[in-house]
Amino acid sequence: MEEIFQKIKQLRFEQGMTLKELSEKTDLSVSFLSQIERGTSSLAITSLKKIADAFGVKMIHFFEETGNLNYAVKKQDQKPFKIESSDSTYVRLSNNFIDRKIEPFLVTIKPHQKENEPFKHPGEEFYYVLKGAVLFTIDQTEYYLREGEAIHFPSSLPHIWENPINQETILLSIITPVIFN
């Protein structure tokens, strides 16, 4: 995440933009933007999208390494990040290329962690439990999954998850549409 924060600050300086001007373009507070640039706050994907739009860059700009595109994602290149209002840790498992349709992640959910509000958006979601267990509630129906089990559903349905056990849960997650393009 630190590299993302640095790229935001660098872009702001390159474009001669003040925090106040960036705040006006993104509808994010000056104090929140300052915390992001200092690396003292987490950043939601939706907030990052607003920042990317304000700078006129694609979201992938914040995740790209300089150099040629490599389709492989080596272990040392997998950088964990968090999404605002969630204690889960995400690791992006793909690079960017033209016409990509899926977004794969590893998701780590802390013991007894529960999301607060159901979420819905266009697309599909697929999860495979690599370790632990997870309880999904999709459109008011509960699905308890253990290691080696999977779920695939339209993400337009309200959905929420929780880790009901005393150990962390690790999921392979594949969603559409792509978030980083």
Rank of each mutant, 00 (worst) to 15 (best):
F55W: 10
I170D: 01
E147K: 14
E168W: 04
D77Q: 06
L171C: 02
L130S: 01
I83H: 07
P80I: 07
F5S: 12
F119P: 03
S155D: 02
Q140H: 09
K74H: 11
Q35H: 11
L106Q: 11
E64V: 09
T108S: 05
E24A: 11
E64C: 08
I109T: 09
Y128E: 03
V30M: 04
L43G: 00
V129Q: 03
F13H: 15
G67M: 13
H152I: 08
F5R: 08
S86Y: 05
L48A: 00
P177H: 01
L11W: 06
K49R: 14
P154T: 12
E115M: 03
F62G: 00
I151L: 00
P158I: 11
I8W: 09
S34Y: 11
Q113T: 15
S34D: 13
D53P: 02
F81D: 12
Q35K: 12
T26D: 10
E162G: 03
F180D: 12
Y144V: 05
L171K: 00
K75Y: 14
K82S: 07
V107T: 03
I179Q: 04
F62W: 11
E37T: 04
Q78L: 13
E64A: 06
I8L: 02
S88F: 11
G56T: 09
S155Y: 02
H159K: 01
G67C: 03
E125N: 07
S86K: 02
P80R: 00
F13N: 14
T108N: 14
F136E: 03
L106I: 15
Y143C: 00
V73W: 13
R100N: 05
G56A: 05
Q15P: 01
K9R: 09
F55M: 12
I83V: 07
M17G: 04
F63M: 09
T18Q: 00
Q35N: 13
R146A: 15
Q113K: 14
V178K: 04
G39C: 05
L157N: 02
A54E: 12
N68Y: 13
L157A: 03
I174W: 05
G123D: 05
G148Y: 01
K20G: 08
K110N: 15
G132T: 01
Q10V: 06
I175C: 06
M59I: 14
I138C: 00
R12M: 02
F180Y: 05
Q140P: 05
T46H: 04
S41I: 06
Q78I: 15
N181P: 07
L33C: 06
E149P: 00
L28H: 08
T46F: 03
S47W: 03
